[in-house]
Design a protein around this nucleic acid. Structure first.
Lengths: 204, 204, 204, 204
DNA sequence: TATGAATGAGTGTTCATTCAT
DNA sequence: TATGAATGAACACTCATTCAT
């Protein structure tokens, strides 16, 4: 009984990824059982293995795809400002990072909270990607520091601080809450840039 | 002739708490098995139950004690500056928060990453305590805003941002790394206060 | 092409019920471990859960099916004498009850000795069924009493006594023992009916 | 710290026996844990072992003491009628058996329902005692049969039936229920003796 | 591709029993 | 005699994974 045109295989895989995202976000990787996952998808647990190889691989896949997408969107957005100065590029970074972390809050949350559930190989790979992403921000800060526009104290500490601050939105931002995305971005732009201005600064 | 000095009961309980802290920090609550825990402590798995009632209760106990200690130390430290202005109190808060999150990095990490592993009752209680702690910072920011010393955009968003930034240290700070605790505190004081200064300010 | 004839699922379930019946009869519900049960069936303990939901549910299932079968056979047998008088119907009841309790001695034994191992819901349901069964006998006795054929003293006490007497066979009757089933039935018919006859009883 | 006069040792043992009787009656031997028992008594579980040697021995002790008491009371009561005829002695037996099974319903219930929980040695001993007790009734029936006073069909079957009937009271009799003990005894005397009477029985 | 049944290792928890104090 | 802590085996149950159909 060969594969027919109407095969719902890809649909099933997509349903698995979606349900996996939801369940891991809600209960954590260790706490999510494949029985739960299968039930959420509406198939039997054995059938999962027609689509995934192991539970671990599903986790890796979700995180890897998220990281790839993070870089893809980053490049798409930041390319438009690559010729501008550090201040403009930092603003663009903030806007992008906050937006992505609001829109993909579950992927993002899993992407760092379940790192420790990854097997060593996968762990190393993803951590390396995260470092590359941090480097994107570090580059901006170092350039700004070199041009006398920023005064970071320590660029690495500043970068970690900024990333922590911005990433935090995925834990408290509510889509229809008191503030909209743009207001949050504006607030954080002020706060971050104000924090980096050399004394007597005049940020807008 | 009841409890003698040589009694090892309390010692065992302390060993369980210590090992539990370590293992949950390293592998997560769900991934830590009581067999691992007992083995780390050096007793049989059944013996754990002479000291804890359930695995869940151990988690709750670790988090609750940590929250209580957080408030206790906060009160101890902040009492000394309670009559000073918002700027000084914010600096004291930053110094305290960073210090606590460096010294108790494992308790702190568990305290938010394993919230979802708490049973509903426990969850509500701890989340409520966290909100009370956030309020401490909010009070400082609101007072500063009222006195025209801070310009937060939105005090709540600012508070979340500051907390995220400061809390982040527990994930990357290394005791004998490039920077010591005081340098990190100084850097973050500049960054946070700079971010809150209204006009072309000149924070000390 | 779903379930095929060779599928051993139903066979396994039947083997579990059979082995469960045997082990609970021999050792009691509490004393029977699922490891014993699985071993008796020839599968791994975890595989049991492809067929039963809990140990408790297996017990309930065994007792419920037995009670249903008791009523089914009762109706089948007693329907044939429903138009006859109380004496004939009591004889039919005795013959039926003794027969069933000899043929299904294990189900019957479990059915009352493990009642206390049932969860409250299940307990209530089964006890209610048992009361309905007792009522069948009570109806006969009351009708006989009303027609002046029986002199029970107290119909309820008489019914309990008769049921206890007849049910006892499942603890001592041996299939190829000194007496066969028909002889036991005859003896008990004499004894029960003699005990209920009004006339000629000259004991003080 | 030697044994003082006020030692409550015997009192503790008595409390253990009483609590054990209650808990085994309510939940069964297998289902009763020594922790439950200790808690009911108001001591720690380890302290039980100052009074009992094993859980099994407690069960044996409870049953053995009950059997001894059964014989002791039987002898006390039946001695008074040992020179009378089978009818009077049967009546005395019925009155005694019912009385004992009402007053000591828990001991009696445990005495047969937990037989299978006894170790082989203990099991054999108790079963042997039970057979001796049955023999007491058998003697009466055989003598009555020999004298033409009873027509039992089969004395052994009749004895089992009578014992089952009378023993049943311990499962349904309620001290302040509709009927008092004397009424039950009277009813069963009529029923049993009526069932054994030779003449006037015209049922086929 | 889906299913239901199987596996074997694992889970948190309870057990009767022991023993130093 | 009582205690609290320890033991090691056992418990019912769940897990991710496999595989014939």
């Amino acid at each position: 009984m060969a594969r027919t045109i109407g095969s719902h295989g890809p649909k099933t895989m997509e349903a698995i990824r979606k349900a996996g995202l939801k369940l891991i976000y809600e209960h954590g990787y260790e706490a999510m059982s494949l029985r739960q996952l299968a039930s959420e998808v509406g198939i039997q647990v054995g059938s999962l293995y027609n689509h995934i190889s192991t539970k671990q691989d599903l986790l890796y896949d979700l995180i890897k795809v998220h990281m790839d997408e993070l870089f893809r969107q980053f490049d798409e957005v930041l390319t438009g400002v690559q010729d501008l100065g550090p201040v403009e590029r930092l603003k663009a970074f903030i806007a992008f990072h906050v937006t992505y972390h609001i829109v993909r809050k579950r992927e993002v949350f899993i992407g760092y909270s379940e790192l420790r559930s990854l097997e060593p190989n996968h762990y190393e790979e993803i951590v390396s990607l995260r470092r590359q992403y941090e480097r994107r921000l570090l580059d901006i800060l170092e350039q700004g520091e070199a041009q006398g526009l920023f005064k970071c104290g320590d660029t690495r500490v500043a970068a970690y601080g900024i990333l922590s601050m911005l990433t935090g939105v995925c834990t408290w931002f509510r889509p229809h809450g008191r503030l909209n995305k743009e207001q949050v971005i504006a607030t954080y732009c002020d706060q971050v840039l104000g924090g980096l201005m050399p004394q007597g600064s005049d940020q807008p």
